[in-house]
Nucleic acid binder design. Structure first.
Lengths: 336, 336
DNA sequence: CTGAAAGCGCTTACAG
DNA sequence: CTGAAAGCGCTTACAG
């Protein structure tokens, strides 16, 4: 069966298309009796407006984009769900785009499909950043340092988070560290690492007593790296700080496999506070980055920019959540 | 700066819009020299076609929709990522829509935004199903029993999976069972439960020796239900079969909290085989449902329907993955 | 091989 | 309050 157009509705109701359109979008300006007749006709014909016609003419899509390179993982799922809630509540649709290159983002930003977008993307080079900002589509970058008149960014306080981790572990008496680094070039990775090292340096820990491995934020990679490290017979650290919870879990799996207990033999700490932390054994000590809130804030921020407000920089604080995966160092307690 | 339209490109290249359009979409029918001039003009003007104009006219969007009610969780993330891969590889975009009611799906199916869609939705009532099928937009339902001329469905073999779980646990010597049920009305929940009970009945297990709790596929709910059950002083089962891995993990958390060891005191088995199973302690015995493949198959199936092929029913097999969370029953070994 | 023209379905001034 | 008309940007027969 052919789908009804507004022309069909107008004919069915015996009015012009202009009036039909007004009855549907601007009900207050059409006489109640006429309006009812039109609405009734629309119902009878199962009329649903053609979104392409509407968008082409109205130059507005009431759609917000979310660009990510992958959807698997608590972080992305939360981000999408929370953004979606804010969008719906404000009469916008969320359009999630999983893309693998910046050119695709750029084209989508240019093709009039979106009124605004949130972009979560590692290492946007300067030229691409400029191009995207020049689209003059309201933009919110996550975890990146780009802003402009119609562009905001929201950053995790990753430097602080790294510092918090180091301070906590040092306070527990730890002196030999391993940091399961995230992804090179990733803003949060670099900052977490930088903050972590800063504090240890201030406390006088020799640089040789801090090992860096690259876990790429992935459980499997962290597991493999940790396993290789232990297999090489390198010294067991007092404490491990992983760039995210998933890689902390990978570390623990490798440690357990080699017969080490967490936290009795080694303390391990994550970052993010995904739901699993509480259910994992041992319950994971971590830094809660409130990543669920990022989606809410990001969506509100795009809406704000669409409203014409200027771009700005926002930050998202973290907080230490102490559970069971770190213990007071035996060494501090007097034992060797 | 104003975005260039095809008119601008045509003027810049000194040709008509028809020729400009052809150079862009149908390069072979325009003379190489002309084509080059047009492409060059498009480049100079940073021309990106207006998707709304194109879709309105061409009556084709090259976009496939995925409808889900939530994105958080390994299942949805995998589904989206794998569908996305297939879509991109075939020149389609994936448009993920997180929606909370079937009316939103229906409207989206009707508004000409999509060439086809995959719908993962619990308990679609008959009327809604009919309405959606009548949109005559190629549709693939996941985990549901709807099909038609342009509608396919892919189902997990959930009945078989429930049977496999029961057979395995019974074979281990288990005689008292607890099933952490999923979601009432959900096809897979009902079938897993049905299959599980079928086998136990065949083996002569009295119905009173099988407890059912409702975990709603959620870790937190399963944890709470299991905890309540144990707190009420009800008897510890020999084995727990949970409707998914997440709720199995919730069960284990509750059991551990009450001092019971898995698998020494109770065996626990999940379903799905999410990545975590391998890293969890104890490593989770489960039924691998190959849920990652569902996305790939679903995307291919929509593409097939768009090509004009008829709708059909597909199924996805499961396979037992034995890890560490189930052990041979002590009772079978002769101890009481 | 190229261009003039029609038209996809809609909204939006504007005239009455 | 209602309708005739223009036009958003594009593609697609069709004529030349």
């Amino acid at each position: 069966m052919k789908k009804a157009t507004i022309k069909d509705v107008a004919r069915e109701a015996g009015v012009s298309v202009a009036t039909a359109s007004n009855a549907l979008n601007n009900p207050s300006i059409v006489r109640p009796r006429t309006r009812e007749a039109i609405l009734e006709a629309a119902r009878r014909l199962s009329y649903v407006p053609n979104a392409n016609g509407r968008r082409l003419r109205a130059k507005e899509t009431r759609t917000i984009g979310l660009f990510v390179h992958v959807m698997l993982g608590d972080f992305y799922g939360s981000l999408a769900d929370s953004m979606n809630q804010v969008c719906r509540a404000n009469g916008y649709e969320l359009h999630i785009c999983i893309v693998s290159d910046m050119e695709s983002i750029y084209r989508k930003l240019m093709d009039h499909s979106l009124d605004g977008a949130v972009i979560y993307w590692d290492d946007v080079d300067e030229e691409s950043g400029r191009k995207m900002i020049a689209c003059d589509c309201p933009l919110v970058f996550l975890s990146l340092d780009l802003h402009g008149p119609r562009t905001s960014c929201i950053r995790f306080e990753s430097l602080k988070q790294g510092r918090m981790a180091a301070e906590y572990l040092y306070g527990l008496g730890m002196r030999k560290f391993l940091h399961m680094f995230g992804l090179p070039g990733n803003y949060d990775s670099e900052k977490r690492c930088e903050g972590f090292l800063q504090v240890l340096e201030d406390r006088g820990i020799p640089r040789d007593d801090v090992t860096l491995l690259e876990g790429r934020f992935e459980r499997a990679v962290a597991y493999r790296e940790m396993r290789r490290y232990l297999h090489e017979g390198r010294p067991l650290p007092d404490a491990v700080f992983a760039a995210n919870d998933l890689s902390a879990i990978g570390c623990i799996a490798a440690l357990n496999e080699m017969g080490w207990r967490v936290p009795e033999d080694v303390s391990v700490m994550g970052c993010d506070d995904i739901a699993l932390c509480e259910y994992f054994t041992p319950q994971l000590t971590t830094i809660r980055t409130h990543f669920q809130e990022i989606g809410t804030r990001a969506a509100r921020e795009v809406l704000r920019l669409i409203q014409g407000e200027p771009g700005r920089l926002l930050t998202q604080d973290g907080v230490l959540v102490v559970r069971k995966s770190c213990a007071i160092s035996q060494k501090k307690n007097g034992k060797p």
